[in-house]
Design a protein around this nucleic acid. Structure first.
Lengths: 267, 267
DNA sequence: TACATGTGTCTTCTGTAAGAGACAATCCAG
DNA sequence: CTGGATTGTCTCTTACAGAAGACACATGTA
């Protein structure tokens, strides 16, 4: 499978970075952009704005949106000229869940964890080379720091990211992690080598803890869930206040690893 | 345009004669078919079979599937040459749920109902002119009759169908209901007029009960959930044994209507 | 009143995406 | 081993989908 043909099939061009020439695009790609754009904005969008947002001609978007609405992948939102995701996508999504034991059980486990511990808990996976929060259950703390489901965060910012990359070649990792990803929210800059070392350490330890990476007030504890093939397929993690005691943290990690191990058992 | 071979440019699209296959299809349409096909089959499908299933050229499907897999809408299943729905679709589906109060609360209510009553309970909606089970929660009975989520059933076979069509013009209803839809699973044939009358009755009553329509052993009780605009937006229903006593049935209907009314309240 | 901005539908043009088909590489039953 | 079926990739052609732009109709606002 070589790439490198003239047309450079770019897997996920992100909405922000658009190509200079608005040259003719495949309809399917436009649709993929539309979906990404809606996902990024998390609300119904007017068709005009949608055209701007994905940087496509209005007439094209009108046609595509009509197809998608007819198909039920999108729905017109209440006031009549905005669109958002449709029931069909929900149904397909549920099909995915049904066909995916790990996700189904993982969601369950995460819900349990956050109920038992009172902390925010999340199920994370790699999603086409990006770290993705697949399911999250808010803790009972007054300040909840949880990020929304489906949010994509640079891998180096997270404990789970370090676990998920276990066993990948250096080259692959370099490919997945952009320069920007190495810059933390507070402006500090990570070295790629340090990050790669972190990955190895995390793999060896069988868990990972990061403090104050995404924000200054939280610690992130994560444990790996393995596929039958022994690959890290997902992680479950807990987000706790950064001043959580060593002892308490230790307990939580033990719990987390236990649960992760349970998820790893493939029936 | 071209000189010479006039024969080559024969427009073979003769009006009236619909070509079953062969004609060029939009990529997007092919994709929509692919998704529908996977949904219908509820399992990973080989690419070759997929091409057959949606009646499209192999080469086209290979290209499209690659795009979709790259985009994360589809995923290669374990053994490597089958595809099924991907994480992205799950994420979009969750976005839909998040943006849709009714669905979110409806799911909850249905789960409650089936737990409280022990019967199978379902949340139903119209999905591009078809009756769709959006969420279902199996009862605790030994024989559960529940159909899978996302299943689409002819409107006239169901109690919910009668409620969901309340307020539609006769013409629109005729359009939604095919001849085949009027033939029940056991071979009996409904008259369209009777069906339309049922709809009116159901609307007036504020609930609907059907006995032995989908199968000979169950009754279906349904109550309408209204949108702010007063339209029937969904129904919740219970599937109970056909020999459930009048009294018990009455109780259940009352419960159902109560819960449906609660769902109708738009915050 | 004019003037800008946004929306939804059409028509016309053309670059390219869908499709046909050929190919090598596997796989499997007889 | 052998012949048929399947899989994944590649090339070439042309039918047609995407784009441009004009239009009619709403809005809003100065």
């Amino acid at each position: 499978m070589q790439d490198g043909n003239a047309l450079a099939v770019r897997p996920d061009a992100d909405p922000g970075e658009d190509r200079i020439s608005g040259s003719r695009e495949k309809g399917l790609n436009r649709v993929l952009h539309i979906l990404e754009f809606l996902h990024a904005n998390q609300r119904a969008i007017g068709i005009g704005d949608l055209a701007k947002g994905v940087n496509a001609p209005r007439s094209t978007i009108y046609t595509l949106v009509r197809s998608l609405v007819d198909a039920g992948l999108l729905e017109m939102a209440g006031d009549g000229n905005r669109v958002y995701f449709g029931k069909k996508l929900y149904l397909y999504g549920m099909d995915y869940v049904r066909g995916n034991d790990l996700l189904r059980r993982g969601r369950q486990e995460v819900d349990n964890l956050s109920r038992e511990t009172g902390e925010t808990s999340e199920l994370c996976m790699l999603q086409s080379g990006r770290y993705t929060i697949v399911h999250s259950s808010p803790g009972t703390r007054p300040f909840r720091i949880s990020s929304a489901t489906g949010l994509q965060i640079p891998l180096p910012w997270t404990a789970s990211g370090r676990l998920l990359l276990a066993g990948f070649e250096r080259a692959v990792i370099e490919d997945m992690v952009s320069e920007d990803d190495l810059v933390l929210p507070d402006g500090r800059r990570l070295l790629l080598d340090d990050f790669i070392e972190d990955i190895a350490t995390a793999e060896a330890a069988g868990y990972c803890v990061t403090s104050g990476l995404v924000d200054a007030y939280t610690k992130c504890l994560a444990a790996p869930v393995f596929s039958a093939a022994g690959k890290v397929e997902a992680t479950i993690c807990l987000v706790v206040p950064i001043d959580t005691s060593e002892e308490k943290t230790g307990e939580l990690i033990t719990l987390l690893r236990q649960r992760a191990a349970r998820l790893s058992i493939t029936g």
